[in-house]
Every structure is written in C-alpha cells, then in structure tokens.
C-alpha cells in the first residue's frame, strides 16, 4: 500500500525535508501506515470528504513541530496509531469548540472578540467537571482487566500487542476488554446526555 511520494501533500514533504532526511522518512512511513485510519477517523467526526485531506495535512504539519517525534515513534511500548488518532481527536475537539464559538458570534452579532467567547463559562466548567467525575467513576468501577487495558491503551499509548504481553492474555482478549470498557463509557455518556436533555 505504498503510495508515490508525489501524491502526498507537498507541504508535508517540504516540512519533513526541512527537518532532515530522517524525519522525512519517518513522516512518509507514518503517512503510509496510518493515513487510511486517520481518514476513517475524520469521517467518523463528520468531516466532509473534501476537507479530510486538508485535515490530514494539518495533522502531519502539527506532527512536524512535535519535539522528540523520533523518540515517541520509536518507543516500542507505544502505538504510533494510537498516538496519531489521539492527536487527531484533540485537534478536532479544539476545532469544533472554535467553530461553535464562531457560530455563536455570528448569531449574536455582538461586539465581542473570539478570545472572550472562547472563555469557559461557569456552567460549562461545572458540566465538564461533572462529566469528568462521572467518567472517573466509570473507569474505577470497571472490571480490573477492562480498566487496565483501557488505561494502558488510552493514557499509556500502548499497542494491543504490548498490553497483551503485559497482561498475559491474547491480543484478541485485550480488544474484548477495550470493547467492554468503551461500551461502559458510551453508556455513561448517554446517561449524562439524557439527564442534560431532561433538565433543559
């Protein structure tokens, strides 16, 4: 599935070249291995098809400025894909928050700058804290195997294979634990949303 270098976004290549041949090779490798998963991930975020390539480029552009990228990517206990998807996830959350701010700005037509609109209101802070607290207790109440797999994958950026080695189980079992952990989180999120809608 190796793609010709010309088909990749030129900016990525330019930026990579600036950081030396080693960095360029690394970025090409990451692109080949993970661009497809990233595109799917962006699709899941309802990013329109024509913007997906731009976002992939933005992500790789950001990646170029990550200090110690080589060390991060060569960390054998880490999963590069997990790292890139987490980065994409955070980028999209950030992007969405900004677009909400812009929408609010356009609707209200107020003389206020984006930075001020970007400030978190007390209500938002409380809601975010409540959600975080709920998620914290969901993690704590998970079965130990689910919790360990989830924490190692999400916060430790570890690959399923390494988690499996560590837990003394198969990769397939690790994936099952992850599915169970994510199910608990989805159900909790649903509860919070339902409660929020009911209180409106």
């Amino acid at each position: 599935m190796s793609r010709p270098i010309a088909s990749r976004h030129n900016n990525i290549v330019t930026l990579a070249s600036r950081n030396g041949p080693g960095r360029r090779q690394l970025v090409e490798k990451l692109f080949d291995e993970h661009a497809r998963a990233l595109r799917l991930f962006l699709l899941g975020w309802s990013v329109p098809q024509d913007q997906i390539d731009d976002l992939v480029q933005e992500l790789f552009t950001r990646l170029m400025s990550v200090a110690g990228l080589e060390e991060k990517m060569s960390d054998r206990t880490g999963s590069n894909r997990s790292y890139l998807l987490t980065m994409a996830n955070n980028m999209l959350v950030d992007r969405e928050r900004k677009s909400q701010v812009r929408r609010a700005y356009m609707t209200e037509q107020r003389e206020t700058d984006l930075e001020r609109m970007d400030e978190r209101t007390p209500e938002r802070i409380v809601a975010a804290q409540l959600e975080l607290e709920a998620m914290r207790s969901v993690i704590r109440s998970m079965r130990l195997n689910w919790r360990v797999a989830f924490v190692l994958q999400r916060f430790g950026n570890m690959s399923y294979e390494d988690i499996a080695i560590h837990m003394g189980v198969t990769v397939r079992q690790v994936e099952r634990y992850m599915v169970q952990a994510m199910r608990r989180i989805r159900e909790e999120r649903r509860k919070i949303e339902t409660a929020g809608e009911a209180s409106c």
Binding site: V93, E131, E193
Partner: peptide, 13 residues
C-alpha cells in the same frame, strides 16, 4: 463522534 469527543475530554484523567 460523541465517543471520541468524550475520550478527548478524558485526557485530563
């Protein structure tokens, strides 16, 4: 989208 957004917010944990 909801699931991945909540995961991003959970980074604080």
């Amino acid at each position: 989208r909801g699931s991945v957004a909540v995961l991003a917010r959970m980074e604080e944990l």
